[in-house]
Amino acid sequence: MDWPDFGPFQEWWLPLTITTLLAGALDDVLQTVGASEQVLKLVQERPQVLEHGRDWLSILSMATSYASYYAWANAFGTVLEIGSAIEVDGIGRFHKAQGRIEFEAHTKFQNLLDVNIPLARQFAA
């Protein structure tokens, strides 16, 4: 019996690492934010702050956004550190060699920029 086809390693290793980090940390992060003295003080002293988009849903969603950012960057560094390349479809390939992180843009990404960046502006920059 053949092994199931999970697709190229470079495509799922990064998302798996990020998800693992978030699954392990997100509840703690949100509980920390929700129980923090600073936030509780905010709720008690300035309840009006929890209006106009500053409700708990917004605060905890911003914490979720931060957590995603940190998990993303941490996972990126970790995956590259263990020697795996990261292939991002339509963007490029990252890999670490001799202590440096190299990036090779995909042709599709270069073409996208080529079409959308005016020649004059690019030369001027």
């Binding site: 392990g24 940390a25 992060v29 920390t32 923090s36 931060y66 941490n74 970790t78």
Partner: peptide, 17 residues
């Protein structure tokens, strides 16, 4: 790295708040 995410996200969120 999980500890890092936990630690720094808490601080980042606090900064935003």
């Amino acid at each position: 790295t999980i500890t890092a995410v936990r630690s720094w996200t808490g601080k980042g969120s606090m900064f935003w708040i």
